[in-house]
C-alpha cells in the first residue's frame, strides 16, 4: 500500500496510460449558484492517470467534476482540457472525456441496453457499422455481452452501472470522470467496479466517499468549502480527511 506509483495504482502498463492522460487545468475558477459558493477561486492541474477527490457533502466535489466537461459553467476563471476550453469547446471535450454519474438510472436514456450504448455514439456521428462494432467491444470489455438485448428495467443496480460505464467506454475516451460510482452498489458490485476501475488504461478522476476505492491512488485531493485543503498521495490525504471528519 505504501507504493503509490501510477503503475501500481492500476496494474496496467504505465507508458500506455501516459499516452491517454489529458492535462486538465483550472485557473481561478469560482462557481456561485443561488448565492452559494460551490468553488472558490480554485487553481489546480490534473495530469496523472489516477486522481481521487474527497470531501464532505456540499464541499464542491461534484461541481468540480461537472466543470471539466462544461456541465457547470464557472462564474469566474477558466477550465481547459488538453488546451481546449471546457465551455466553448464542450463538444470536443465531451468526446474525449466520459462521465459516469452516481445513479445509472439517470444516465441510461434508452429502453434497451444495446440502444442505450448506441446513444452517445450516434450523438458523436459514428456510422451504423462503427456503432455496432463499438457497442459489441464495450460490452465484451466489461464482460456483459449477454445483456445486449435486455430491457434496462429488468437489470440489477450493479448491471445498470456497468451498462452506463459501457456507454461511456464505447466512445473510447481518454479520461473518465466518476461521480460517486459506488454509492448505489452493494459490496459485491462495489468490488467489481473497483476491479474494472483498476484495470482501465484510461485516465480516471474519481469523486468518492468510498475511501477504500481510492486507497492506492497516487494523488488524492481533499476539498472543503470549494477550496483545496490538501493534495498528495492517497495515504496522506485520506488520513487527513478521516481526521478532519471526526
Amino acid at each position: 500500500m505504501s507504493d503509490t506509483s501510477p503503475e501500481r495504482a492500476g496494474g496496467a502498463d504505465g507508458a500506455d496510460r501516459d499516452a491517454l492522460a489529458q492535462t486538465i487545468v483550472f485557473s481561478g475558477v469560482s462557481v456561485v449558484r443561488d448565492g452559494r459558493t460551490a468553488l472558490d477561486r480554485l487553481s489546480i492541474g490534473f495530469e496523472e492517470t489516477r486522481i481521487g477527490i474527497v470531501g464532505l457533502n456540499g464541499s464542491g466535489k461534484s461541481t468540480l467534476l461537472k466543470c471539466i466537461i462544461g456541465l457547470v459553467k464557472p462564474t469566474a476563471g477558466t477550465i481547459t482540457v488538453d488546451g481546449r476550453d471546457a465551455v466553448g469547446e464542450a463538444r470536443a471535450v465531451r468526446r474525449s472525456t466520459g462521465f459516469l454519474f452516481q445513479d445509472p438510472d439517470n444516465q441510461i436514456v434508452m429502453p434497451l441496453v444495446g440502444e442505450d450504448l448506441a446513444f452517445g455514439l450516434k450523438n458523436h456521428g459514428f456510422s451504423k457499422a462503427e456503432i455496432g462494432a463499438r457497442v459489441d467491444a464495450a460490452l465484451t470489455r466489461l464482460a456483459i455481452g449477454h445483456l445486449a438485448d435486455r430491457r434496462i428495467h429488468e437489470l440489477s443496480g450493479g448491471e445498470k452501472q456497468l451498462v452506463a460505464l459501457a456507454g461511456v467506454l464505447a466512445l473510447t475516451p481518454k479520461t473518465v470522470l466518476f461521480d460517486e460510482p459506488t454509492a448505489h452498489l452493494d459490496l459485491k458490485n462495489r468490488n467489481r467496479l473497483r476491479d474494472v476501475l483498476h484495470a482501465m488504461p484510461e485516465q480516471a478522476i474519481v469523486v468518492s466517499h468510498d475511501l477504500d476505492l481510492l486507497a492506492d491512488f497516487p494523488r488524492v485531493v481533499l476539498i472543503e468549502a470549494g477550496r483545496i485543503v490538501h493534495d498528495g498521495p492517497a495515504a496522506e490525504t485520506l488520513a487527513r480527511h478521516r481526521e478532519a471528519s471526526r
Binding site: 456541465l71 468526446r95 454519474f101 439517470n106 444516465q107 450516434k122 450523438n123 458523436h124
Partner: peptide
C-alpha cells in the same frame, strides 16, 4: 430533481447529435 441529473447525463453524452446542432 431527477430531471436535472438526467439533463446533465444527456448533455454529457454528446446530445444533441453533431448534424442537428
Amino acid at each position: 430533481v431527477r430531471s436535472e441529473a438526467l439533463a446533465d447525463a444527456i448533455d454529457a453524452r454528446g446530445f444533441p447529435p453533431e448534424h442537428a446542432v
